Simulated assay, not measured.
Amino acid sequence: MALKDELDIVIPTIRNLDFLEMWRPFFEPYHLIIVQDGDPSKIINVPAGFDYELYNRNDINRILGPKASCISFKDSACRCFGYMVSKKKYIYTIDDDCFVAKDPSGKQINALEQHIKNLLSPSAPYFFNTLYDPYREGADFVRGYPFSLREGAPTAISHGLWLNIPDYDAPTQLVKPSERNTRYVDAVMTIPKGTLFPMCGMNLGFNRELIGPAMYFGLMGDGQPIGRYDDMWAGWCCKVICDHLGFGVKTGLPYIWHSKASNPFVNLKKEYKGIFWQEEIVPFFQQVVLPKEAITVESCYLELATQVRDKLSKIDPYFTKLADAMETWIEAWRELNEKVKPIAENGPVKLSSKAK
Rank of each mutant, 00 (worst) to 15 (best):
G252I: 00
F285T: 01
F284G: 08
Q287Y: 05
F285G: 01
T306N: 07
A305Y: 00
F276I: 12
A305K: 11
N267M: 15
F285Q: 00
V308S: 01
A294E: 11
E271P: 01
K311D: 08
I281C: 02
L312T: 05
K260E: 01
F284M: 10
W277A: 01
E298Y: 07
A305Q: 15
H258N: 08
V297K: 06
V288W: 06
Q307P: 03
E293Y: 02
T251C: 03
G252L: 01
E271I: 04
E280P: 12
I256P: 02
T306Q: 08
T251P: 00
L312P: 09
T251G: 03
F276D: 12
P291N: 14
D310E: 15
L268C: 00
Q287D: 15
Q286P: 09
Y272V: 03
Y272A: 12
P254F: 02
Y255M: 03
Q307A: 14
T296Q: 13
L290R: 02
E293Q: 10
N263A: 04
R309H: 13
K269G: 09
F285A: 04
T306M: 14
E279V: 08
L268N: 09
L253R: 03
L304F: 04
K314D: 07
G274C: 06
K273G: 04
K269A: 09
I315W: 10
L302F: 05
S262T: 13
Q307C: 00
K292N: 07
V282W: 15
S259R: 12
E298K: 10
G252N: 05
I275E: 14
P291M: 07
F284C: 11
K292C: 10
D310I: 03
T306W: 05
K270V: 10
K269D: 13
P254T: 09
K314I: 01
E271S: 11
F276T: 11
K260Q: 04
K269S: 10
G274H: 08
P254D: 03
G274E: 07
E303M: 02
Q286M: 09
F276S: 13
L268P: 06
T306L: 12
V288A: 08
K314W: 03
N263P: 00
Q278L: 10
P254K: 01
P264K: 02
Y272D: 05
V289G: 07
I275V: 12
I275M: 15
I315Q: 10
F285D: 10
K269T: 08
E303W: 14
S259Q: 13
I295L: 03
E280F: 07
I281Q: 04
E279W: 10
F285H: 11
S313F: 06
S299M: 12
K292V: 08
E271M: 05
G252H: 05
K292E: 13
T306K: 15
A261I: 11
D310W: 06
C300A: 06
S259P: 00
K260L: 04
A305W: 08
V282Q: 12
Q287E: 15
N263F: 08
S299D: 14
N263R: 14
P254V: 02
V308R: 07
V266Y: 14
I315G: 07
L268H: 12
G252A: 10
R309M: 07
L312E: 05
E293C: 15
G252K: 05
Y272K: 08
T251I: 13
Q278E: 15
K314Y: 09
K311L: 05
D310C: 02
P264W: 02
